[in-house]
Design a protein around this nucleic acid. Structure first.
Length: 549
RNA sequence: GCGCCAGUAGCUCAGUUGGAUAGAGCAUCGGUCUUCUAAACCGACGGUCAAGGGUUCGAUUCCUUUCUGGCGCGCCA
């Protein structure tokens, strides 16, 4: 059991013995300053009033009880207004090592989210062009979140929603068709501004013509249709490939068109009407979202008879619930934040609990090179594609960059910095920690050391050693917090700290050249355990853990 | 005008749900390789947590007002 869980359980026992209720606001965590001990508990402080005691007196009684209850606890002191500062015995920390060895790649996982069927929808870029760097940020966050949630025991699925039914698919077809006409020598082709300007459109047109020269002679409607279908297929293939190269795995690809064709959108609208939330006005069908806190009511079906995105989004989310998910997370670009209230209204109208639907907003990425901004816009065709960025800096560096910022702050992504193998770019710092451990193991083998030797773990008493043991013991709680707060960047910061502790130890203590064989074996076990923890953390970020660098 | 997000060291950013003397990296300055990977380590310098007010044992964190920046407010997608 983790130190924090163990202390919590001991404190619960002690509090119960004193007849004091366990406070909701109890926090047990490592104190900011290590000199206060391994863990600090505030429960005397927060429940003193209810217990009718003064905080320090209650804390004193708890301290006595803790010492009595467990031999893992070396010392307890009462500090400040009534904090309990607890120090665990070195033997407790040393016993973390066999735990890691036993759990291996599963070390840090838990059942915290057991029973929750969760879905995370992310990227969901319209199939009208290649993914750009902004999509990459959402992809890294969504993908890592799914990994973190699974590790924390959630039954989590990754899904991509393909907007293949809207008018922009028509625009895509028209854009390609116009390029085809240009390619066949037509000189009177006007290429409208609202068409997709990117060079990739010309490439698609060329490929189509090569495959079927008769295309140019088709009637316009049929040709645009063919262009739309072909273009979408090619672009989606590219998107899948780009995500794959970025180490992003989707469990499902969900087509908007399939919803429409199955009549799910109409059924959703009927449902809203039946529940009295939808009404006709000015020839359009409206959803009374203000009843659920939105600013204004929203259109579901326009007066020209066509459906809005919102209408199919309602049907889509109804479908998610229908598939048995009861925790939905949408990862959106922050420029869509205005969309949240109306989708929350939809969730409420579907009679789903408010907290079953959550949006992670991802702020825009500012792409720079040598400090200078690179403009991007899919429409204008001037953008930096995800694929190009990955090719230039590597998937590991790009992912780590995206995952070392909280999602709701803007991100400066400077290609020249992310490309650098320096401390401006901590991915290598963390990976190096893992590679160092692997190098040690290789060296130990070369020297004929017995890798199965247990060593004497009680010799691991150096400050740097206990620091690492305390840190890896925190890992499981960090994973749970990252999952609960949908904040995969917690993992990155944990890894940077852990890697720092490993490098510090490495610089100040010989492992293979330790004073005696017992200590050497014990240190090797410790470092392998830390290496395992680093590896597990990197896996949650979707970043590789290299054997050597 | 209304709404959302942000404002923390010279720069880039954390701050684990209200805890103790606010942290890290970079940059600058100074140290450490004849021993397991120097892509590393150690030390120094660096702060009115945008500003004011409030809530309480205690606030970077919660409430409120103001300032600054970004984004959004369509029968667009």
């Amino acid at each position: 059991m983790r130190a924090s869980d163990q202390l919590t359980s001991l404190l619960r026992t002690a509090m119960a013995d004193l007849g004091v209720a366990w406070p909701d606001k109890a926090v047990i965590e490592p104190p900011r300053d290590k000199k206060f001990g391994d863990l600090a508990a505030n429960c005397a402080l927060v429940s003193a009033k209810a217990a009718g005691k003064n905080p320090r007196e209650l804390a004193g009684q708890l301290a006595e009880a803790l010492k009595r209850l467990s031999t893992d606890i070396a010392s307890v002191s009462v500090a400040g207004p009534g904090f309990l500062n607890v120090t665990f015995a070195p033997s407790f920390w040393q016993s973390r090592i066999p735990l890691v060895e036993e759990e291996g790649d599963g070390f840090g996982s838990s059942r915290a989210g057991a029973g929750v069927r969760a879905q995370v929808e992310f990227v969901s870029a319209n199939p009208t062009g290649p993914l750009h760097i902004g999509h990459g940020r959402g992809a890294a966050i969504g993908d890592s979140l799914v990994r973190v949630m699974r590790f924390a025991g959630y039954d989590a699925q990754a899904e991509y929603y393909i907007n293949d039914a809207g008018r922009q698919m028509q625009t895509l077809g028209r854009s390609i068709w116009l390029r085809v006409k240009e390619l066949t020598g037509a000189t009177d082709v006007a290429f409208p501004e609202d068409c997709y300007q990117g060079a990739y459109i010309i490439g698609i047109a060329k490929d189509m013509l090569d495959a079927d020269p008769a295309l140019a002679d088709m009637g316009e409607d049929d040709a645009v249709d063919a262009c739309r279908a072909y273009g979408m297929r090619v672009i989606m293939e590219g998107i899948r490939r780009d995500l794959d190269d970025f180490n992003v795995r989707m469990d499902a690809w969900f087509s908007e068109r399939s919803l429409v064709e199955a009549g799910a959108v109409e059924r959703a609208l009927e449902g809203l009407k039946a529940a009295g939330y939808a009404y006709e006005e000015d020839g359009a069908l409206w959803f009374n979202t203000t009843a659920f806190g939105d600013d204004k009511n929203r259109v579901l079906r326009k007066s020209d008879g066509s459906l809005t995105y919102f209408a199919s989004d309602i049907a889509y989310h109804a479908d998610k619930y229908g598939r048995g998910f009861h925790s939905l997370t949408d990862v959106w670009g922050a420029d869509h934040h205005g969309y949240i209230p109306r989708l929350r209204a939809a969730v409420a109208a579907l009679n789903q609990p408010r907290d079953s639907f959550d949006v992670v907003l991802v702020q825009l990425v500012n792409l720079l090179r040598d400090g200078e901004q690179i403009a991007m816009s899919t429409r204008a065709g001037a953008f930096e594609s995800l694929a190009e960025v990955v090719r230039e800096v590597g998937a590991d560096a790009a992912r780590f960059m995206f995952l070392s910022r909280k999602s709701d702050s803007k991100l400066d992504f400077d290609l020249s910095l992310v490309r650098q193998r320096s401390m401006d770019n901590p991915v290598y710092y963390v990976q190096y920690a893992h590679a160092r451990v692997k190098a040690l193991v290789r060296r130990a083998r070369e020297r004929g050391m017995d890798l199965a030797a247990q060593g004497d773990l009680s010799l691991l008493t150096a400050r740097e050693e206990l620091d690492m043991l305390r840190e890896i013991d925190r890992f499981g709680a960090v994973v749970e917090d990252a999952a609960a707060n949908k904040a995969p960047h917690y993992i990155s910061y944990f890894l940077m700290d852990l890697a720092g502790l490993l490098h510090r130890h490495y610089a100040s203590h010989q492992v293979l050249g330790a004073d005696n064989a017992e200590l050497a074996s014990a240190r090797l076990r410790l470092l392998r355990a830390v290496g395992q923890c680093v590896k597990n953390g990197l896996a949650l970020l979707g970043v590789s853990a290299p054997e050597s660098m």
